[in-house]
Amino acid sequence: MIPETLKTSLKARVASALTPREAAVDVMKELQAHYGWLTDEAVEEAAALLGLSPLQVEELATFYEMIYRRPVGKKVIHVCDSISCWCADCDKIIQHLKDKLGVGLGGTTADGMFTLIPCCCMGMCGDSPAMSVGGVPYGKLTPELVDEILEMERNNR
């Protein structure tokens, strides 16, 4: 169940859209922010808000890279594995993240803090290798910097 305030603001977002569907991505993102991931319940709530069936929301939810239909950690680490970051040896950074966090790609740390997911080009090619942690972008990564960032993000809940 989502709080009334969130429901009201989502209803307003849907009402302000030219067609309810246009607000679908916003609604899914808001619900994801609330639950941490887009739960089955959230899909049904989104459907009710948008006047769609849960399946029709699911059709959209499963298309997008940044909508999570499975539980994720408190903060999702998206680490770029596209060409510019590859040039900057992102493989080393990804391996370091795996080792440091003790998870494989797609895995969530035992404490439920981080989920590690490779992602497509983040548009940070000038600062490659790059990643984002809970939506905050970080560039020019080195293993040492990654350690610092993880430590900071872990404490900065």
């Binding site: 089955d40 899909v43 069936s53 849960p54 399946l55 029709q56 699911e58 059709e59 499963t62 298309f63």
Partner: peptide
């Protein structure tokens, strides 16, 4: 109908129901 459709993308597209 509204309870059957296509989910996912790329080679992951799946034709079925929400549940």
């Amino acid at each position: 109908g509204t309870d059957f459709g296509v989910m996912g993308s790329a080679g992951r597209v799946y034709f079925g129901r929400f549940q």
